[in-house]
């Protein structure tokens, strides 16, 4: 069946990148762990704390999303795949990849904890505890942290990858003038235009508002990761709809 072949292809295409990423991640973790172990002792307490490799993975997912549209779109159109199926394959492969990355991160977290268990000066943990620490205070149930972490980051990676896809398809469809306008205009607006306006006119209300919304959306005030999962899911659905709207009229450009 066509969609299965399409998903298979997209996974194969990303295989190399993902493998590279995780090998680097593992090596990095291992390297720092070794350094930590060799530091402690006479020199007093040196605390090595690594938490949040998931953010690296998140950035990776985003970049993967941006770069993976063009080549696979061209190959699949050449092979008689409809745009509907192409979109479906993007969604399915995106979910599978997010799941894999999230599980791998969970695995590295567990590994990290096991390494740091023997040394109180070393803390190798995941991002969940950092983000939602009130929830997991008092040690917390290791399994709960792991499971919620996997689920949370699965949805986060999927949303972030979808954002990447969206930008990738958007740029594919835009002509040169649009590309320049967007590349300069959007960052310019959010990094310069709006902040200046906010500072001068609204006295910081806008960015405070952004911050508040962000906090609530991810459930930080209440230390509720499920709120964050819901937000990621909503983003995923919205972005998927936008991606479909862009892909359905995408043509082969030479």
């Amino acid at each position: 069946m066509t969609w299965k072949a399409a998903v298979k292809y997209r996974l194969w295409e990303s295989k190399k990148s993902i493998l590279t990423f995780f090998i680097i991640l593992m090596l990095l973790t291992a390297l720092l762990a070794c350094m930590a172990v060799s530091f402690t002792g006479d020199t007093g307490s040196v605390t090595i704390s690594i938490s949040g490799m998931e953010f690296g993975a998140g950035i990776f997912a985003f970049v993967l999303g941006i770069t993976s549209f063009r080549d696979s779109f061209r190959l699949m159109i050449q092979n008689g795949v409809s745009r509907k199926t192409i979109c479906l394959s993007m969604l399915v492969s995106g979910l599978i990849l997010s799941g894999i990355m999230s599980v791998l991160c969970g695995f590295l977290n567990v590994l990290g904890k096991w390494i740091s268990a023997g040394d109180s000066n070393v803390f190798l943990g995941g991002a969940m505890e950092t983000l939602y620490f009130p929830r997991y205070q008092g040690g917390g149930n290791g399994l709960q942290i792991l499971m919620e972490g996997i689920l949370f980051f699965f949805l986060l990676f999927a949303a972030v990858m979808a954002a990447g896809y969206f930008i990738g398809v958007l740029y594919y469809r835009m002509n040169k003038a649009c590309k320049i306008a967007v590349s300069v205009g959007v960052p310019g607006f959010f990094l310069f235009g709006l902040p200046i306006f906010d500072a001068v006119v609204t006295h910081g209300m806008i960015y405070r508002g952004f911050f508040e919304i962000f906090q609530r959306a991810y459930g930080f005030p209440t230390a509720n990761p499920y709120m964050g999962m819901l937000t990621s899911l909503a983003q995923l659905l919205l972005l998927s709809a936008c991606i479909w709207l862009l892909v359905r009229k995408a043509v082969i450009k030479d």
Binding site: T2, W3, N79, G80, V81, S82, R83, K84, T85
Partner: peptide, 11 residues
Amino acid sequence: AGNDSALQKIF
């Protein structure tokens, strides 16, 4: 248009 089985009759 948008039909996998039809499009894949063509190479």
